[in-house]
Amino acid sequence: MQIYLPIAEMSIPVETIFLLGGFVGFISGVFGVGGGFLTTPLLIFMGIPSAVAVGTQGSQLIASGVSGVMGYWRRGHVDFMIGTVMLVGGIFGSIIGIIFFQFIKYIGQMDLIISLLYIVLLGSIGVMMLFEGVFTMFRKKTMRSEFNRLKSPSLISRLPYKMRFPRSKLYISVLVPGGIGFVSGFLVSTMGVGGGFLLVPAMIYILGMPPLLVAGTSLFQIIFTSAFATIMHATVSNSVDILLAVFLISGGVIGAQVGVLASKKVTGARARVILALLVLGVCSQLAIQLFLHPSDLFVMVIK
């Protein structure tokens, strides 16, 4: 069934969006990731304008963030204080991201820069995850010592505006969680990804937060940063398609349920290898488009 998207102003088979949402929901259910890194490029492959894909993706991040954070919240695994400081950084990051987004749109290089950002991000994360997963799979003994948090580098401990975070038992400059939040906000508003796979390691290794609190806190922060980015995209560039969001989310809801059931059958290291291959697959698809001679050398932009 074809459906006409009111903001993207194009007609698209509703089953495809539903399946895409379901697939990403399934992935997020199995691997516990937001899946934004898959949705935005896949929407763009389907012909949805990049601006609408990025703008709309925020809604899905909110939905998957809320569904994830509830569980952590019930168990008390959310540090609201650090989350709020990160959120303040996230809002600044979103604002800068929106300005950057408008700028690359203005100079006509949006597709190139978004692709490049994706290739760099997905490529580096995919490779790291693949190595780590393969390494763990072949060495049955898990290298526990490697996962202990690093001591905060001296530069970080010298930063001003220190604050006590009792829940995480940290005494650290607010600039550190604020900075991490800033990066996340920038990613949400320019690429439509929550950046959980970047935030989680940063919170463990740079902030030195207890790993138990990390997932819940990063989700808490992503929900509000995405909500802010959604408001900005809707008011500044008018690129949030509510109909697209509804179909993506409803597909995602079902996919996530199936994914959670399936996750019981996929073990940690193997799951990470599969996810890494998936991430690298999307990355190479984007890279091919950028590096191979394009079949059509021309691009039309209507203003």
Binding site: Q60, A63, G65, V66, S67, M70, V253, Q257
Partner: peptide, 8 residues
Amino acid sequence: ALFSGWLV
């Protein structure tokens, strides 16, 4: 988005 996330 919030509502559907909560529903899930």
